[in-house]
Amino acid sequence: MKKHWYDYLWIVSLTYLILGFFNILFAWLGLFCFFIPLIISVTKGTKGYCNRYCGRGQLFGLLGGRFGLSRRKDIPKWMKSKWFRYGFLVFFFAMFFVMLWNTYLVFAEAQDLRQAVTLLWTFKLPWQWAYHGTLFHPGVAQFAFGFYSVMLTSTVLGLITMVLFKPRSWCVYCPMGTMTQLICKVRNGKA
């Protein structure tokens, strides 16, 4: 099958994850992964982002598929249930707002900048090597640490389910995927 330019976006996703090890401020670029799918679903009413451009999905597809790092088993039924998918979306949102709140506290100077990346919403990994100061407010860096935590956590979860089940198992419960599908359902009158 003919390859398109967007079939190589996994390189962008991989580069993004690597850059976060060198300068945390690159984490801001991850906002594209949030806004582009939303814009496509709202304006065009499709899941064009998932279907074509998602570099993270491509990365899982490549590692689990071509590299064979997947057992290729069926995902458990409960993981594809609406309860779990929407529940995970709500949980993800809640954690996102906690992250935004922490950013606000740093901006409001009620809290100091914490140079750590929180993995799986629990484990605080020291990450000071990737922080070299900012021209702006420390709150800008706090958001970067928080946002990178979200991106790294979802990558780790995706890798785990990639190994256990099928390569792109993450796509089944990806909060962005669930949200854009929901937007499409509402927009196209199927909800």
Partner: peptide, 24 residues
């Protein structure tokens, strides 16, 4: 009802026989 419309099937179909309808 259980489809998440990710589009993985579309990519592998050698005959282009699958499409994602309205992102659903």
């Amino acid at each position: 009802g259980d489809c998440v419309a990710c589009g993985c099937c579309v990519k592998v179909c050698p005959l282009g026989a699958i499409q994602i309808v309205k992102g659903i």
